[in-house]
Design a protein around this nucleic acid. Structure first.
Length: 690
DNA sequence: CTGCCTCGAGTTCG
DNA sequence: CTCGAGGCAG
C-alpha cells in the first residue's frame, strides 16, 4: 500500500502548476463562501476541486503547502499543545460598567492629550464578541501559526484547529487572475492578526443537542463551547463544530504605518479577513454611548453573543501618546453589558410543596446580580434534574435567567469543589405535614399524598382566589396566608363566610380595605361556570379543559353526575383526566365545600351559546407580547366567545398570531412556520367588522 | 406504537 | 418560560 518511492519523486511541472491553480481557486471560493456569504459555485463543484487537489497531494506530498485548503481538516490528533509566544502581548482592556465610567474614560483621555473637554474626540465603537481571543500569524501572507491568548504573553499553539475555521484565510496574498483581490494595503511580510473565535447560537444548540443524545454534559454557553472546541486535541472534532471568527486588530506587524484604527479595520477587510460589520466611527463620546445603548437592545437579533462594546481612540498617533498602564492600553475601554450569567454558591436546597402536592426542590444561593437583577433562588424542578446537572449543596454554579426572566442553574463549576459538598436527598416524608411521599414509576415528580396537607390547602385557596379563577381582588397570596394563620379559613368555602370584623382583626388591615375585600368577595359570587370549575383546582383541569367542560355539560351538576366514560367523550379529555375529575367529585370533603359555596350564594351564569362568527369559528389564535387595549386574558376570552380558539403555543396549526408590544420567541416561531402574523389593530378590525 | 400538539403546573423579581 | 405528560392522529 505505502508507495514510499513516490514520496521522493519530483512531480511533473504541469502537476505542480495545476496544484497551484487549484489552491488559489479553492481559497478564492472559500472567501466567497465564508467571508462574503455569497458562493459563486455549487458545493458539488467545490468538492470536486478539493478532491482533485487532495489526489495530487496524496501522490506528491512534497506539493503540500501550509496554505493548502486540504490542510484545514485531517491533521493527526496531538497529545498536547505547544506554547506559542506572542511577538506583541495580547493585553486586556479596562472595563466600564456605566455611562459615567464611559464618560470618565473620555475625560481622562482628553486630559492626557491636552484636549479641551468640550471638544469631540474620534472613537471607533465595535461590538465586543463573547468568544475566545486568538492571534493568527501570517508570514509572507501565509497563515503559519494560530494561538490562544493564554496569559497574554504565551498562549497555546492551536494552528491545526484554527485551520478548520473556514473564515480564516490561509493565504491573504492577491489571488492570481482576480482583479479585485489586490489590496491597496500591501500584505505585510509578517503580521499577527487578532480576532475572536465564536459560535453562532444555532450551532451551539446543535452541538448541545448532539451531546445530550450521547449522554455527554452540555456546554453552558456558546463561549464555553467555542473554547472547548478550539482546545480539542483532535482537529477532526473541531472541524465538525462550525466555528467562526471576527478579526478586529493587528498585533506585531512589519511596516504598519496606519494613521487610524479604522484604517486597520479596512486593511483587514481588504486582506479578506472577516470583520464584524457593526462598527461605528463616532465623533465624540455621545455617539459612542448611543451605539452602546442601541446594541444593548438589538443584541438578541445578532445570532451570536456579545458582552459589550469596545471603544478605541481612532487616531494611532493619539494611541501612541496615551500608551499603556499595567497590562492594558489607555486608549481603549470595554463597555460591558450586565452579565446574563453569573456564578454563585448553592447554600441550601429547600423543598416546597405545591397545590397538587408536588415536591419541588429550590436552590437558595448567595445573592448575585444577573441581567441587572439580584437573584437568590432558582427552581431545580425535581430530583432527576438535580442528578442530571449533578448539583450538590455547597457547589459553585453558573446561573442565568431563561428567556431573560426566570433564573435557572446552568451547570456546576466542578473545578471549585473542595469535597465538602453535600449530596441532596429528596425527603421520604412531606416537609410540611410529614405525610407519605410517592413517586410513581416513570414519573419525574414526587408528591405528598396527604390531601389534608396544609401546604396543599394553602396553595389551593390561593389558586381559588386568583385572578384567572374566582378573581377576588385584593385576596392575594399573603392575605390568604394570614387568614389561614388566623384560623379564619380552612377551605375555599370559608371565604364566603368571612365578616368585616374578621378581616379587621388581621394585621395591617383597616376598615376601608376590609370593606373592599368584602365587596370583592361578594362580586366574585357571580362568575362563569368555566372559571368556577377551574377554581376548584382539579388535577389535570386547567383553564382550557375547564372551558371545554363548561361548554360541553352546561352545569356543575351535570359534570358531577357524569361517569368516567361520559367524561372521556369530551374532546381533549382522555382516561387520565376523566378519572381525575370523577375521583375529585366523589371526595366527601369536596362535596362539603361545594355545599358551603352553594349555600353562601355562589352562582355560575348559565352557559349561553353565542352566535359564532364565521371568520373566527375553528380558527386558532395565539397572543404574544403586551396588548394596548385589553389584557391577553380578555383578548382570549373574546376569541372564544366569537367561536375561535385561543392557544398558548404557536404551531403550524395556528391560524393567527396577534403580536403586541415586545413580542418575543413566539413571533419568531410564527415567522419560521409561516403563520399569519397580525397586529393588535388588525385583530381589533377583525373583531369590529360586522 | 410513535410523534406531534397542547395544556398544566411550577416559578422569579420588582 | 420551560418541562413533563396527556390526548389524539397516523
Amino acid at each position: 500500500m505505502e508507495q514510499t518511492n513516490l514520496f521522493d519523486q519530483e512531480p511533473p511541472r504541469e502537476v505542480k502548476e495545476r496544484a497551484e491553480v487549484l489552491r488559489s481557486e479553492i481559497n478564492k471560493h472559500n472567501y466567497y463562501y465564508y467571508i462574503l456569504d455569497a458562493p459563486i459555485i455549487s458545493d458539488a463543484e467545490y468538492d470536486k476541486l478539493l478532491r482533485e487537489l487532495q489526489d495530487i497531494e496524496a501522490r506528491y506530498p512534497s506539493l503540500i503547502t501550509p496554505d493548502s485548503p486540504t490542510q484545514r481538516v485531517g491533521a493527526a490528533p496531538q497529545t498536547a499543545f505547544q506554547t506559542h509566544e506572542h511577538r506583541q502581548p495580547m493585553l486586556s482592556l479596562a472595563n466600564a460598567f456605566s455611562e459615567d465610567e464611559l464618560r470618565g474614560f473620555d475625560a481622562r483621555v482628553k486630559r492626557m492629550l491636552g484636549i479641551d473637554n468640550g471638544e469631540n474626540l474620534e472613537y471607533v465603537a465595535e461590538l465586543k464578541i463573547d468568544g475566545l481571543a486568538v492571534s493568527l500569524t501570517y508570514e509572507n501572507g501565509i497563515f503559519i501559526v494560530g494561538a490562544t491568548r493564554g496569559d497574554g504573553y504565551r498562549g497555546e499553539n492551536i494552528t491545526a484547529n484554527l485551520r478548520t475555521i473556514g473564515s480564516i484565510p490561509l493565504n491573504i496574498n492577491p489571488i492570481p487572475g482576480e482583479e479585485g483581490t489586490a489590496s491597496i494595503y500591501p500584505v505585510p511580510r509578517f503580521a499577527e492578526i487578532r480576532g475572536e473565535v465564536f459560535l453562532l447560537h444555532e450551532e451551539f444548540q446543535r452541538i448541545n443537542e448532539e451531546r445530550t443524545e450521547r449522554g455527554e454534559p452540555t456546554f453552558a454557553n456558546p463561549r464555553n463551547a467555542a473554547a472547548g472546541s478550539v482546545r480539542q486535541l483532535d482537529p477532526k472534532v473541531t472541524a465538525r463544530r462550525k466555528l467562526d471568527i471576527f478579526c478586529y486588530g493587528i498585533g506585531y506587524v512589519e511596516n504598519g504605518g496606519w494613521k487610524t484604527h479604522y484604517e486597520i479595520l479596512s486593511a483587514l477587510m481588504s486582506w479578506r479577513f472577516k470583520v464584524n460589520p457593526n462598527i461605528r466611527l463616532c465623533n465624540g463620546i455621545d455617539e459612542v454611548w448611543d451605539f452602546c445603548q442601541e446594541w444593548h437592545d438589538k443584541r438578541e437579533t445578532l445570532g451570536y453573543d456579545i458582552d459589550g462594546v469596545v471603544v478605541k481612540v481612532n487616531s494611532i498617533d493619539y494611541q501612541e501618546r496615551l500608551g499603556y498602564v499595567a497590562r492594558s492600553p489607555r486608549w481603549a475601554i470595554a463597555f460591558k453589558y450586565p452579565a446574563r450569567q453569573a456564578t454563585t454558591v448553592v447554600r441550601d436546597i429547600i423543598v416546597q410543596v405545591g397545590r397538587t402536592g408536588a415536591l419541588t426542590p429550590v436552590a437558595y444561593m448567595d445573592p448575585v446580580e444577573v441581567g441587572g437583577v439580584k437573584v437568590m433562588r432558582a427552581t431545580l424542578h425535581n430530583e432527576d434534574e438535580i442528578r442530571r446537572k449533578g448539583i450538590k449543596i455547597g457547589d459553585t454554579v453558573v446561573i442565568q435567567r431563561a428567556g431573560d426572566v426566570i433564573p435557572e442553574v446552568v451547570e456546576v463549576v466542578t473545578e471549585k469543589r473542595d469535597g465538602d459538598e453535600i449530596e441532596f436527598e429528596m425527603p421520604k416524608f412531606c416537609p410540611v405535614c410529614g405525610g407519605d411521599v410517592e413517586k410513581p414509576e416513570g414519573e419525574a415528580v414526587a408528591r405528598c399524598i396527604n390531601i389534608a396537607c396544609p401546604a396543599q390547602l394553602r396553595e389551593n385557596i390561593r389558586h381559588f382566589a386568583s385572578r384567572e379563577a374566582m378573581n377576588i381582588e385584593g385576596m392575594g397570596p399573603s392575605l390568604v396566608d394570614r387568614l389561614i394563620d388566623a384560623n379564619l379559613i380552612r377551605d375555599p368555602g370559608d371565604i364566603y363566610y368571612l365578616k368585616q370584623e374578621d378581616l379587621e382583626g388581621i394585621e395591617r388591615m383597616g376598615e376601608k380595605s376590609a370593606a373592599n375585600i368584602i365587596a370583592a368577595i361578594e362580586r366574585s359570587k357571580n362568575t362563569t361556570l368555566a372559571r368556577f370549575i377551574y377554581a376548584l383546582g382539579i388535577r389535570h383541569v386547567g383553564e382550557r379543559t375547564a372551558q371545554v367542560l363548561a361548554k360541553h355539560f352546561g352545569s356543575l351538576e351535570r359534570i358531577q353526575q357524569a361517569s368516567v366514560e361520559e367524561l372521556a367523550q369530551v374532546p381533549d379529555v382522555g382516561p387520565v383526566v376523566a378519572q381525575s375529575i370523577a375521583r375529585f367529585f366523589a371526595e366527601e370533603h369536596v362535596k362539603n365545600v361545594l355545599k358551603k359555596l352553594r349555600e353562601a350564594g355562589v352562582r355560575t351564569e348559565p352557559v349561553t351559546v353565542q352566535k359564532e362568527r364565521t371568520e373566527f369559528s375553528g380558527k386558532t389564535f395565539v397572543f404574544t407580547g403586551g396588548l394596548e387595549t385589553m389584557t391577553r386574558d380578555e383578548a382570549e376570552e373574546l376569541v372564544v366567545k366569537l367561536g375561535g380558539k385561543a392557544s398558548s403555543s404557536v404551531s403550524k396549526s395556528t391560524d393567527y398570531v396577534v403580536a403586541g408590544e415586545k413580542a418575543g420567541s413566539k413571533l419568531e416561531k410564527a415567522r419560521n412556520l409561516g403563520v399569519t402574523v397580525i397586529s393588535e389593530q388588525e385583530f381589533l378590525d377583525m373583531v369590529g367588522q360586522k
